[in-house]
Design a protein around this nucleic acid. Structure first.
Lengths: 219, 219
DNA sequence: CCGGGCAGTAACCCACCGGTTACTCAGGCC
DNA sequence: GGCCTGAGTAACCGGTGGGTTACTGCCCGG
C-alpha cells in the first residue's frame, strides 16, 4: 500500500477531520456559537492542531466555507444536456440547482452565515470568484434561448440569475418564519416540490417571448 | 409636565434603551457574537436590568425580534390604493415591500439570524402569526386580479407570495457572495433599482393571463 | 543509524462570558 | 411620615472562550 492504513501521524487525515467537523458545526450553529473546543472534540483531534493547520478559528471557518463552495462544481449537470430545447435545458438546470440547495444544507447555511457577516471571509482571493459551472451554463442556455426566439430578447441574464437563486434560497433562508406566518410547513417534500414547479412556471411564463407564449397559452 | 424631564428612575426609558441597543447589536452581529455587557454598555444601563426586565439574553433577543417585526405593520400602503387596476396595485405593493426591506436592515437581518437558528425564538406565541398587512393585501389584490381576468386563474397565491419575498430578500440575504461571484455590487442604488424593475417584469409577465399578456406584448 | 523538523499532546493563560448576590434608594400610597 | 415595592448599582461567581507554552516522539533524508 502506498499510504499506511493505521497511523498515529497522518497530516491529511487530521486536517480533513478538522475541516469536516468545522463544516458540520459552523453550518449548523454559526461561527460564534461554536467553540474551538467543540470542533476539536467532534474531530477527536488536539486543539493545538487547529492553529497548526489553519492558524485561527476564523481561518478555519474560511477553509470550511471554501470547501463547501467547491461542492457546486460537483453538481452533475448531465441531465441538462438531455433537454431538447433551451427551455427544457433551463428547466433541468434549475431543477438541479434547487435539488442541490435542498441536499446540501451545509452549503446553503454556511453561505447565509457568511453573508450575514458581510462576506468577511470571502473578500480575500478564495475560490468563490473562480468559474462556477452553474452560472456559466445558465448564461449560455438563456442566450441560446433568446437566439432561438424562445425567450424575450430583453431578458437581463444577470438579474434573472439572481432572481432564480432567490426563488430557490427563500425556501431555506426564511423557512421558519414563513412556515409560521403562512401556517404551511416549508420543510415538507411535497411543499418543496410544488414550490419548484411554481417557480419554473413563473420563470418560464415570465421570460417567454410573445410568440412562444402564445404556443404555451394554447396548450 | 406630566413626566419629569430628567430622571434617575424611569422604567420605560431603561427598557426602551435596552431594546434599542439589543436590536442594533443583534441585527448587526447576531445573538452569539454580542455579549450582554456590550448591550448594556451601548444602552448605558446596568447589566442587572437585562435580567430585571427580560429575564435572560435569549428573552432579550426574542423581544428585539418581536419589536422589529412590528415594523411591517407600520408600512404605509396608501400608495397601493392609488393603483387603478389590480396590476398597478400589486406593483405598488411590491415596490413598498422591496423598499421596506432595503430601509429596515434591522428587520431583514434579525429575521435571517433567527431563521438560521431554526426559529427558536419565534416558535412561541409571539406576534409573528398575527395579521400581517402585507400578506393580507397581497392575497386580496391577486384574487381581484384573477377575478378581473388580468392574472392567470391558476396562480398559487401562497407560493407567489413566497416567491416575491424571495425575489426581494435575495438582494440582501446573498448580497456579498453574489456581488463577488457576479462582480456587480448589489449594494449600489441603481443596481437595486434595476433589480426591482426586473422583478416586477418577471412577476407580471409570469402571472399575466393570456389575454392581458397579448396586450402587454403589443405595447 | 541518527538528527531535525513536523505531527501531536497536556497543561496552562486570563479576559470575558451569562448570570447572581446583596445591597441602596426613589417615590407612590395610606 | 413611614413603609413597601420595584428601579438601580457594584462587586462578584464559576466556567469557558480563543489562543499559547513547553514538551514528546515519529519518521525521513543523509
Amino acid at each position: 500500500m502506498s499510504t499506511p492504513p493505521k497511523i498515529s501521524r497522518n497530516p491529511d487525515r487530521t486536517r480533513r477531520k478538522l475541516l469536516q467537523a468545522a463544516i458540520r458545526l459552523f453550518s449548523r450553529h454559526g461561527l460564534h456559537a461554536v467553540s474551538v473546543d467543540q470542533v476539536v472534540g467532534l474531530a477527536r483531534v488536539n486543539k493545538r492542531m487547529v492553529y497548526h493547520y489553519f492558524g485561527s478559528k476564523d481561518a478555519l471557518f474560511e477553509a470550511a466555507l471554501a470547501e463547501v463552495y467547491k461542492r457546486i462544481e460537483a453538481i452533475e449537470f448531465h441531465a441538462v444536456e438531455r433537454g431538447r430545447s433551451p427551455r427544457e435545458k433551463l428547466a433541468r438546470l434549475l431543477e438541479s440547482y434547487f435539488e442541490f440547495l435542498d441536499q446540501e444544507p451545509e452549503f446553503t447555511r454556511l453561505l447565509q452565515w457568511e453573508n450575514l457577516e458581510k462576506g468577511r471571509h470571502l473578500t480575500k482571493e478564495n475560490h468563490l470568484l473562480s468559474k462556477n459551472p452553474f452560472f456559466e451554463r445558465f448564461r449560455a442556455i438563456v442566450q441560446d434561448g433568446v437566439a432561438a426566439g424562445e425567450f424575450r430578447a430583453d431578458v437581463d441574464v444577470t438579474h434573472l440569475m439572481i432572481h432564480f437563486i432567490g426563488l430557490c434560497f427563500i425556501y431555506h433562508s426564511n423557512r421558519f418564519s414563513l412556515s409560521q406566518s403562512l401556517d404551511l410547513d416549508l420543510g415538507q417534500a411535497k411543499v418543496k416540490a410544488r414550490g419548484l414547479s411554481q417557480v419554473l412556471r413563473l420563470v418560464f411564463e415570465g421570460i417567454a417571448s410573445p410568440a412562444s407564449a402564445a404556443k404555451l397559452g394554447a396548450a
